[in-house]
Design a protein around this nucleic acid. Structure first.
Lengths: 204, 204
DNA sequence: GTCTATATGGTGATAGAC
DNA sequence: GTCTATCACCATATAGAC
């Protein structure tokens, strides 16, 4: 069973993919090592041949989820010629909020991170900077503050949408967030009019 | 000991105030009933004379925290003649993010809520609508979408700031969020220029 | 209404067989 | 490298004394 040279690495990747999905959907505390390992087709005892602690797995799973989410949204080559509109529409979509696929750990775990150790918070912060860079590269000017505002609108919008218990409100919220970002970017190229102020119905 | 007529009510309030603080700072799973009751000066066994489950306490604690945070930010009378600027500056402040006092459950618990039961999510959604109404009443026009955008920027900004592990980045982020909201509201009264697009340094 | 004691079960982490 | 078995601990919730 274990004679393949990359057997361990494939097991590790199976654990990480499973953990990335489970942690994003349920958070750190609600996911047990047993649950991750069972879903990955192993038992709890095998876990410590790959990771030293649950916290270490959490950090690695956040990195895995971030890479996969980025590849899904931007394509595996991660070129920088994507349009901001495409990224924003994919991120602030109903599928991202409620889908069964991979989810962005920035939005899904944001209020889970403050409770974790330094290593985990460092990783989350690094992933956050990565998203800011993506947004900054794909908008027309290079304003750092504006990229931050866009990312707050993206992460905040998805995180709040996931918490809300009202489908109609969720749709309105996501649309408002998309409008705030995209109108701000479009309008700023032509002398600068409102971004955040537009209502969704006025953006058509 | 228990002959005072409102003894039970005062105990209940002590439990709720303690729970509101602990839950906001540490989330649902990291806070035990024992921890809440000990901090409230009682033992675990007394808990079930006041609440039927930990989840019920969580919901009530969110309501308590929201009322207290609102009173702190807007004054106990909750008049509607407060300025948006005052609310936003208090909300998107370093003290709110890192302070020891009361914290807004909307920002501190946002990604904790999706894992909870229907009752808790209903309460959180109701509190969310309350903040949207506050912001809508205190801005100059009554655009619902714009109020949603402001609230996303407030909640998202504080939630992200709490997760980040870099003090300088946190300060820049909070300032960018304040600028996005306040410039949008100021500028829209005079023909409508950029809100979300402004950099903090350009807003002076 | 609050206490102590307990039933019941899950958890992270380790030990040792294969 | 993965398994089963186990340690040590902490959780929610309940029962019954006062």
């Amino acid at each position: 069973m274990s004679w393949s040279p990359d057997h361990k690495e494939r097991s590790r990747q199976r654990i990480l993919m499973t953990a990335a999905r489970l942690f994003a959907q349920q958070g750190f505390d609600q996911v047990s090592i047993d649950q991750v390992m069972s879903a990955a087709g192993m038992t709890r005892g095998a876990f410590y041949a790959h990771f030293t602690s649950k916290s270490e797995l959490y950090g690695e799973a956040i990195l895995t989820a971030a890479r996969n989410a980025r590849d899904t949204r931007l394509g595996p080559n991660a070129e920088t010629d994507q349009h901001l509109e495409r990224v924003v529409n994919a991120y602030l979509s109903g599928e991202h909020v409620s889908g069964d696929g991979l989810h962005c750990p920035l939005a899904f775990l944001v209020s889970d991170i403050a409770q974790r150790d330094e290593q985990v918070r460092d990783i989350w912060t690094r992933v956050f900077r990565g998203l800011v860079d993506v947004v900054r590269q794909e908008q027309d000017d290079s304003g750092y503050a504006r990229a931050l505002q866009h990312v707050v609108m993206m992460i905040g919008g998805v995180a709040i949408a996931r918490a809300l218990n009202d489908e109609a409100l969720i749709r309105t919220l996501l649309e408002s967030c998309r409008t705030a970002i995209l109108d701000a970017s479009i309008d700023t190229t032509k002398a600068g009019t409102i971004g955040i102020c537009r209502t969704p119905s006025a953006s058509a």
